[in-house]
Amino acid sequence: MIGPGNAMIAVRLATYPAAILVYGTSLFLAFIAPNSTKASLGRRFALPLLIAAAIALAATIAWVFAEAAIIAGGWREAATGGLLQTLVFHTSIGEGWLLRCCLAALTTLAVAATFDRPVLVTFVSGLQLASFALSGHAVMNEGIAGVAHVAADAVHLLAGGAWAGSLIALALALSHAASQSDSLHDTRRLVARYSRMGQWAVALVVASGIANTLFDIGGWPVDRLSPYLLLLAAKITLVLAMIALATRNRFVLSPSIAGGDPVAIGKLRNAALAEAILAVCVLALVAVLGTLSPM
């Protein structure tokens, strides 16, 4: 049987990408996709987003069982002595988990019932994503520092979700544009809108990421070879690679598309897919980092 620690990593790895995909894609459909392709893209994403929302809900429910097993030292121990009930109803961990479960359920219902209203889905899934800040290292601090840490983590989640979660939708929209010779005007508007959003998202990811790191580590690290710091360095390296791709997209490929170069559309689509692959690798590291002590 899988151990509680590995189960927690698996739960986190299922929760974050699924929730981010729902949030980022719905945001793309609501505010970035051209009106000419918004409806068709929404239909293509209806089932994948519903599956992703359901996965995030199921993983969020499973989260507390893994948490209880980690605290108790095993699955059998977690199932006895009323630990699970105490954890859920009498601790801040349980309160945060109940909130995340409610928001995950609301997101699933919103996707199922109103997938053609992406603004509503964006709002609800954004609340769900921001609530993850109540389940990580951000809750270690107390007082004003604790509030600031949670706020920084929530900003990091929302900005990162807007960036990483919309990449698949961008690639699909660009694939559609590449096959339509008369849609260059819409493609220019799409790229311009995405570039503006992407600049803000990347800036907020960097700023909030620096703040989170300072909160987590508390200063210059003494042990520079700890597992947490090594994985954090790997995460930062991957994010820097994503930023390098995004910078090329913004200052090389986007102007080429604006200038009427149809070949640049395919290049931008491929770059978006490459960023998405890097984003998945980042989330895999995040799944592990959340289970390690930063100290």
Rank of each mutant, 00 (worst) to 15 (best):
V111Q: 03
L184E: 12
A58R: 07
A246M: 05
N270S: 13
A151K: 10
G3C: 05
A207T: 09
R100V: 10
S36I: 03
T15E: 10
H176W: 14
S208C: 00
C102V: 14
A154G: 04
A104I: 01
S208L: 03
L245S: 08
G42S: 05
I93N: 04
A241R: 08
P255E: 08
L87S: 01
H156K: 08
A52C: 01
S208T: 04
L238C: 00
L170E: 01
W75E: 02
G74L: 07
A272L: 06
G3F: 09
I217G: 02
A46S: 15
G259E: 09
S195G: 05
F28C: 00
Y228S: 00
F215G: 09
P255Q: 08
L84M: 14
E275A: 07
S254L: 09
R196G: 14
L174M: 03
V64W: 10
A271S: 15
H176S: 13
L157Y: 03
L57S: 02
T15W: 10
L50I: 01
I9W: 09
V205Q: 01
D216V: 06
V124A: 07
V206R: 13
I257W: 00
I236P: 04
K38P: 07
L204Y: 05
G290T: 04
A104W: 04
A241H: 08
F89S: 14
Y194T: 02
T37I: 14
A110K: 04
L170F: 08
S181Q: 14
M197K: 03
Q85Y: 12
A30C: 08
A244W: 13
A39N: 11
A59F: 12
A207Q: 06
G24A: 02
R193W: 07
H149W: 06
A56D: 01
A62C: 11
L106I: 10
L41S: 08
V191M: 05
I257V: 13
G74F: 10
A69P: 03
R248A: 12
V205P: 03
L47N: 09
T122Q: 07
V288P: 12
P17A: 04
W75H: 09
A276E: 04
P294V: 11
V64G: 06
F123C: 12
V22Y: 02
S26N: 05
R76N: 15
L167P: 03
V11F: 12
L167K: 06
L278G: 10
P17L: 04
M295Y: 15
A78K: 04
W220F: 14
A258P: 00
W75C: 03
S293R: 02
L229K: 09
G198E: 07
Y194R: 10
L57V: 09
L214R: 12
G136D: 03
I20E: 02
P221E: 10
L285K: 08
L238P: 00
F28T: 00
T91H: 14
T107L: 08
S256G: 12
R196C: 13
S40G: 03
V111T: 06
F115N: 09
A171C: 07
L98G: 10
I265Y: 06
V263A: 14
A148D: 07
L204C: 10
L232W: 04
A234N: 01
L174K: 07
G24T: 03
H149Q: 08
K38C: 05
A177M: 05
S40V: 14
L174A: 00
A159G: 01
L214Y: 11
A284W: 14
A112H: 11
F132R: 05
A177G: 02
P294D: 02
